[in-house]
Amino acid sequence: MNNWVEITMKLNGKTVSCRVKPSSLLIDLLRDEFKLKGAKPGCLEGECGACAVIIDGNAINSCMYLAINAEGKEVTTIEGLGSDDNLLDAVQEKMLSHGAVQCGFCSTGVAMSIKAYSEKMKALGIKPTREEIKKTLEGHLCRCTGYIKIIDAAEAVFEEGSEM
């Protein structure tokens, strides 16, 4: 049962290979092997969203995702957001300017969810309503902000003229 499996995935834009146990969780692979500590272990039970990463365009709780399933996938973590020109992604900028970050433990997961959602909506040419935004954020627990500023930030991402 301890037979290790070799997987290859695209992690933050780079192709990487590694050996994982079939039972390994993606969050552990990211945090312990790749030292990408931005995905946070808030519950490890799929309830809080702090560990969210983007897999092939969808925000996924990495604590509920087996590392072997990342084989062939494109995985983006918070460390993969932003570019050389803009160190922070527009989502992160909006979160800061709207005061959506307090202790920050939920923030990286929230940012990944908003990012995935905004990319998807952008591709479809849809500007979601505030109620729809709330629905997509429902999987994220935050004990500091009361969510309002997080929702404001997400809404601002969809405002016209906002870079995405």
Binding site: R31, L36, K37, G38, P41, T77, L87, M95, V101, G104
Partner: peptide, 23 residues
Amino acid sequence: KATQKFDGKERVSGKAVYGHDLE
């Protein structure tokens, strides 16, 4: 005046080192 969180960038980017991230 409304002022962004001084230590916010570190937190929203995954750079901030929480107790769980220490090795």
